[in-house]
């Protein structure tokens, strides 16, 4: 009896997944109905090779509504977390993603290139680099290309990023170029310069602090101290510097640094923004109780 019940439940689940897949692939249904069906059972696509192939076909078909294709992509991504079941279809999945990487729809293109790059896909990497070298071949804007290339950085990308930092097409592209260069051991001097440049966008200075912490933590500690001693620097950059010292600095040396503690005491009062005053007070309570 119990065995029969178990079998019945398993069958019910398969029927339910089956029904979802049936609606998902039925072009006579509305896009909304198909999206809802796909979303209801994302793992249905790994229950059989046929279902996975059907979902890949939807994803790759430019005649399908874009909402359905995006839902198919999300379902395939969710299913990819079921590593064992997904493995047999992974090759076809990657092949479809590469095909869709040049799709006319920019949102789909961007998402697919992101998935490929997170798995360090050479095809996607080449496409992105080609687009940065020749804008006519670009599949995504330069800032997005730089962001995606940061998943698997190679020397070619560093050279392009350096050029973009020198002559950026827009602020976002410069920011993403800086983020990409944060993995380049030779880029520490660039970040030291950006961090200390008061004319630089403060978001870029914050990135420079994180990059310097990554590439040369000692240098960041030195620069953070200098920024805190500089009365003319901005509150937010001083806050970043304080956090760097408090989180990653030499506690013993900081406790003995009278000039620094005096400067932080000044920062903890006056016209400093309230949220940063609190950061300064926390610092002082740790090092100058």
């Amino acid at each position: 009896m119990a065995k029969k019940l178990k079998t019945a439940k398993r069958t019910a689940k398969k029927v339910s997944s089956r029904a979802a897949m049936s609606v998902a692939t039925n072009v006579d249904k509305t896009a909304k109905q198909r999206v809802a069906a796909i979303t209801s059972a994302p793992l249905a696509v790994v229950e059989s090779d046929k279902d996975m192939q059907a979902m890949l076909a939807v994803l790759g078909n430019t005649d399908e509504p874009i909402a359905v294709r995006l839902a198919a992509l999300q379902a395939l991504q969710a299913a990819s977390f079921s590593v064992v079941a997904f493995e047999s279809g992974r090759g076809d999945y990657v092949a479809t993603l590469r095909k869709v990487a040049t799709d006319p729809d920019p949102e789909l293109r961007q998402r697919v290139l992101g998935i490929l790059m997170r798995d360090k896909d050479g095809f996607a990497q080449k496409k992105l680099l080609d687009g940065l070298k020749d804008p006519a071949k670009a599949l995504v804007p330069p800032e997005k290309a730089l962001q995606l290339l940061s998943y698997d950085v190679h020397t070619d990308a560093y050279e392009i990023a350096r050029d973009i930092v020198k002559k950026p097409p827009n602020d976002d592209a410069k920011r993403e170029a800086l983020r990409l260069l944060a993995a380049d051991a030779k880029a520490a001097p660039i970040f030291e310069k950006v961090l200390r440049d008061k004319k630089e966008l403060r978001a870029n200075r914050q990135i420079a602090a994180a990059a310097l912490h990554s590439l040369d933590p000692g240098k960041l500690q030195q620069q953070a101290r200098k920024i805190l001693l500089d009365k003319s620097d901005y509150d937010d950059i001083k806050a970043t510097s304080l956090v760097a010292l408090q989180q990653f600095g030499d506690d013993e040396a900081l406790g003995k640094d009278k000039a620094l503690l005096k400067s932080v005491k000044g920062f903890s009062g006056g016209k400093t923004q309230a949220k940063y005053k609190q950061t300064a007070r926390q610092f002082l309570s740790k090092y100058s109780p």
Binding site: Q74, Q147, R179, A203, Q206, I207, A209, A210, V243, K275
Partner: peptide, 30 residues
Amino acid sequence: DNLGTVSFANNNPLQFWKTDGQPGVNRRPL
């Protein structure tokens, strides 16, 4: 932001978050 680059407050220590040799977090809510 629209690109999916995550920014942190200047007093948030996660601004120094680093993985796989790369600082920062990419997360684009859909």
